[in-house]
C-alpha cells in the first residue's frame, strides 16, 4: 500500500482501548439472550427510516438515509464517456465505490479502501445492475459513491437503498427501485435489522455449541418485480433457516418500497410547487 503523505496516522502499534474494557461481555463463552433487544424493538421489527433526497448540490442525484443510528450518504454523477474503451459496448456500466468514513466504526478505518470495502463496492454494483436500464446509455459509465458516516448495523442495506434512490433522483433510467434489509441469526432468534453490537454477536459462536446457527444475511430485491437482486450471507446457517430468513427479508423489502416511492414523489411535488 503506498504511504499516505497527506495525513498523519497514529503510531502503527496503537490499538483501540475498547478491547481492554468490558472484557467479560466480549467473552465467547457467554451465550447471549435475545428475548429482548437493547433498543426495545421486537425481533421482527425494523428501525425507522429517514430518507432525504437531493442533499448534495454538486451531484446529479443524491440521497441521505438514516436507519436508527446508521447514517449513509450517496451521490450519483452524470454518465461520462470512457476514453480507453477499445470497442463499442452496447451496454453502459455502473461504477460503485463504497467507503466507511474513518470515524464511522468503532475501530478507525484508514482512508483507502480495504478488502471489505472493495467487496461491498462489488456487491453494490451487482445489486444495482439488474435495476438500471444499461442499454439506454451505451459506452457510458455512471459513478455511484457511497459513504457511511455512522455504522450502527446493516450499513450495506442502507447503502443499497440510498444508491437506488440517488440513481432515481439523478434521472438514470431504471426498471424499478431496489430495497434491501439485513437479518441477524443467532440460534433460534431472527433479528431483523440488527445494530452493530447485535451484528458482532451474530458473527461469533459460543463455545461448546456445534450445531449453532449464527450469521448475517443481507438481501436486496426489486419488490415491484418480485426478483432478488443480491444475496450476501456470512456465518454458518443451515438451508431451512436460510429459506425462512429470506422469506422474512423479501416481505420486509416489499414493505419498505412505498417509503422510497413516497420520498421521491414528495421531492418532485416540492419542485413543482416551487416553480409555480
Amino acid at each position: 500500500m503506498p504511504v499516505d503523505q497527506r495525513r498523519i496516522n497514529g503510531p502503527e502499534v496503537s490499538v483501540p482501548y475498547h478491547i481492554y474494557s468490558d472484557f467479560d461481555e466480549k467473552s465467547d463463552k457467554v451465550k447471549h439472550d435475545f428475548s429482548k433487544r437493547s433498543d426495545k424493538r421486537t425481533n421482527s421489527e425494523m428501525r425507522k427510516i429517514f430518507l432525504k433526497i437531493g442533499i448534495v448540490s454538486q451531484a446529479k442525484g443524491s440521497a441521505y438515509i438514516e436507519m436508527g443510528n446508521t447514517k449513509v450518504v450517496c451521490s450519483v454523477f452524470d454518465p461520462r464517456e470512457l476514453s480507453n474503451k477499445n470497442g463499442y459496448c452496447t451496454q453502459g456500466e455502473i461504477y460503485c465505490e463504497f467507503k466507511f468514513a474513518p470515524f464511522s466504526c468503532q475501530k478507525r478505518k484508514i482512508h483507502q479502501q480495504n478488502a471489505e470495502e472493495k467487496q461491498y463496492s462489488l456487491i453494490l454494483q451487482r445489486t444495482l445492475e439488474p435495476a438500471v436500464c444499461l442499454h439506454e446509455f451505451p459506452n457510458f459509465q455512471v459513478d455511484v459513491y457511497v459513504m457511511v458516516l455512522d455504522n450502527a448495523g446493516s450499513s450495506l442495506a442502507a447503502a443499497i437503498m440510498a444508491a437506488s434512490t440517488a440513481l432515481a433522483n439523478a434521472g438514470v433510467p431504471m426498471f424499478g427501485l431496489v430495497t434491501a434489509s439485513t437479518i441477524g441469526i443467532y440460534g433460534n432468534h431472527y433479528l431483523m435489522d440488527p445494530t452493530d453490537t447485535e451484528e458482532a454477536i451474530c458473527n461469533t459462536q459460543p463455545d461448546k455449541e456445534d450445531d449453532f446457527n449464527h450469521g448475517i444475511i443481507t438481501l436486496a430485491s426489486l419488490p415491484q418485480h418480485n426478483q432478488i437482486s443480491e444475496v450476501f450471507l456470512i456465518g454458518s446457517i443451515d438451508t431451512n433457516t436460510i429459506k425462512q430468513a429470506t422469506e422474512m427479508l423479501t416481505a420486509a423489502n416489499k414493505d419498505i418500497c412505498p417509503v422510497l416511492q413516497q420520498c421521491l414523489v414528495k421531492t418532485i411535488m416540492k419542485l413543482h410547487n416551487e416553480k409555480k
Partner: peptide, 20 residues
C-alpha cells in the same frame, strides 16, 4: 456438517425467490 457459511450472488441479472 450441512451448514452454509457464505452465499454471494454474482452476475448482473436477478433471480426469483423460488429459484434461489
Amino acid at each position: 456438517n450441512g451448514k452454509i457459511s457464505s452465499v454471494v450472488k454474482l452476475g448482473y441479472g436477478s433471480i426469483q425467490f423460488n429459484t434461489f
